[in-house]
Each structure stands twice: as structure tokens, then as C-alpha cells.
């Protein structure tokens, strides 16, 4: 790997160094913009006792849901688990520790983690079970709770196009949590649909500058649709 060339040749290489007990931050919202091949590689490696940070946990049989099948996840921070029967079962049976986290707080925890901000105050969750046991301060007459940032041992991200320097752009609403996740990994791995030549991406249109990215790989994607709604 010379200079700023972040490309790796295989998914095995892309997830080199992941170990049981690590924290993995994953981009994606529902099944949209999820790093599906990197997740599959984590499954293949069989590492377990993972803490996963992601808005959702996929569905039964796809996305992060496949890591539930072999009990690879011991703890998850997520905002919504409604569409995943296995997740709900493991949660109700206390087989998986679930820290339900408001969606905006989750995004901000990743953003803060990547930006070197250890914690932040927010009104979100005050007076609810989410605020219990958290430090409270009043700002401008509003009660706020202290929320801590998150940093992952790995961040796994799905982009649209990248260059070999690791500059990434996302496509449509597949952006979602990916840019924040990309900043918050000690090792950030991005899989994309296309790796282009340096200079092809307009610098002012880059969503994730390459400084955050350690490894880039080009893959092919199923892009499963969770709720197919069309107008007649």
C-alpha cells in the first residue's frame, strides 16, 4: 500500500485485524446504504462478542441480521429494531444487550466520536428512560442530558464512488449514517460500487475526505429493498 493508495484487493484484506470483542460502527439506514459485503466478511470470519453501532440491525437473513444467526453480536446500539424478528427475540431473551438510542443522538455520537468531542448535551431523551442516570444540565431554560461520543475499532461504510485516496461520495439517501460512521473508526473500511481515477471526483462534492478512510474496496451489491412502494 503505497502513499495514499487505500485500495485493498480482497474482502479478507479489507477486514484484516477484526477480532472478537471489538466495537464495529456500521453505516446504513434499514437496508439502504449498508456495507453488505463487509458484513458478510465479518460473518465469514466468525468473530464474536462484537459491539455493533448501527441505526438498525438489518432484517432476518440480510444485512447485520446475518450476524445474529451465529450470535456474533453481544451488544448493539441502535434506534429501531422493528423489522427484525430474530433481534427482538434475542433482546427479549437477554441474549443480546441492546442500548436503544435516539436516532439523532446516535448520529451525533458518531459525529462527535470522529470529531474528537468526548460528549455533548442534548434535550433529546430528557425525562424519558434514555435520560435515566445521565448528567442533566439546564441551558436557556431547557433540560439537557449528557451523551457520550462513540469511537469504533472498525467502521464499515458503503459508498457509491471513491478514488484510491479514499475520497468518497454517496448516492441519494444511501448516504444516511455513512459519513459519520466513516469518521469514527480507528480503522475505517469503505466499500464502493466504483473506484475512479483521482481527479474524476469534483473536490467540492466529496462527502467523506480520504483522511478518514484507511481501506477502500470495490464490490458488487444486492441492494435489497425493504419496503417496495410504487405508485400505480
Amino acid at each position: 500500500m503505497a502513499g495514499f493508495d487505500k485500495r485493498v484487493a480482497s474482502y479478507e484484506e479489507a477486514m484484516e485485524g477484526i477480532e472478537s470483542g471489538m466495537t464495529v460502527i456500521a453505516g446504513g439506514f434499514g437496508l439502504c446504504g449498508i456495507p453488505e459485503n463487509l458484513i458478510a466478511e465479518i460473518k465469514r470470519r466468525g468473530v464474536n462478542d462484537l459491539t455493533v453501532v448501527s441505526n438498525n440491525c438489518g432484517v432476518d437473513g440480510f444485512g447485520l441480521g446475518i450476524l445474529l444467526e451465529d450470535r456474533q453480536i453481544s451488544k448493539i446500539l441502535a434506534s429501531y429494531v422493528g423489522e427484525n424478528a430474530l433481534f427482538e427475540k434475542q433482546m427479549l431473551n437477554d441474549e443480546i444487550e441492546v442500548v436503544l438510542t435516539p436516532q439523532g443522538t446516535l448520529a451525533e455520537k458518531m459525529r462527535a466520536g470522529g470529531a474528537g468531542i468526548p460528549a455533548f448535551y442534548t434535550a433529546t431523551g430528557y425525562g424519558t428512560p434514555i435520560g435515566e442516570g445521565k448528567e442533566v444540565r439546564e441551558f436557556n431554560g431547557r433540560h439537557c442530558i449528557l451523551e457520550e461520543a462513540i469511537v469504533g475499532d472498525f467502521a464499515i461504510v458503503k459508498g457509491w464512488k471513491a478514488d484510491r485516496y479514499g475520497n468518497v461520495i454517496y448516492r441519494h439517501t444511501a448516504q444516511n449514517f455513512n459519513p459519520m460512521a466513516a469518521t469514527a473508526g480507528k480503522i475505517t473500511v469503505v466499500e464502493v460500487e466504483e473506484i475512479v481515477e483521482p481527479g474524476e471526483l469534483e473536490p467540492s462534492q466529496i462527502h467523506t475526505p480520504g483522511i478518514y478512510v484507511d481501506r477502500i474496496i470495490q464490490g458488487t451489491f444486492e441492494k435489497r429493498i425493504e419496503k417496495r412502494t410504487v405508485r400505480s
Binding site: 439506514f29 434499514g30 437496508l31 439502504c32 446504504g33 441505526n55 423489522e83 436516532q103 439523532g104 446516535l106 448520529a107 451525533e108 458518531m110 459525529r111 457509491w160 448516492r171 441519494h172 439517501t173 444511501a174 448516504q175 444516511n176 449514517f177 455513512n178 459519513p179 459519520m180 462527502h207 441492494k223 435489497r224 429493498i225 425493504e226 419496503k227 417496495r228 412502494t229 410504487v230
Partner: peptide
């Protein structure tokens, strides 16, 4: 388009004048 969904995870379109951004920006 699987890359174009709303918060209910339904496939949608963007109207003219729409903007798309990260979840942190959204919140």
C-alpha cells in the same frame, strides 16, 4: 431505486428542489 428511501424505509422520489444529506445534518 433502492438508494432512494424515506424514514419509513419505503422507496420514494425526490421532488424538484430537494436536498439530500447525512443523518447528522438531518437531525
Amino acid at each position: 431505486d433502492p438508494d432512494m428511501i424515506n424514514a419509513g424505509k419505503e422507496t420514494v422520489t425526490a421532488r424538484p428542489g430537494a436536498a439530500i444529506f447525512s443523518s447528522a445534518e438531518s437531525f
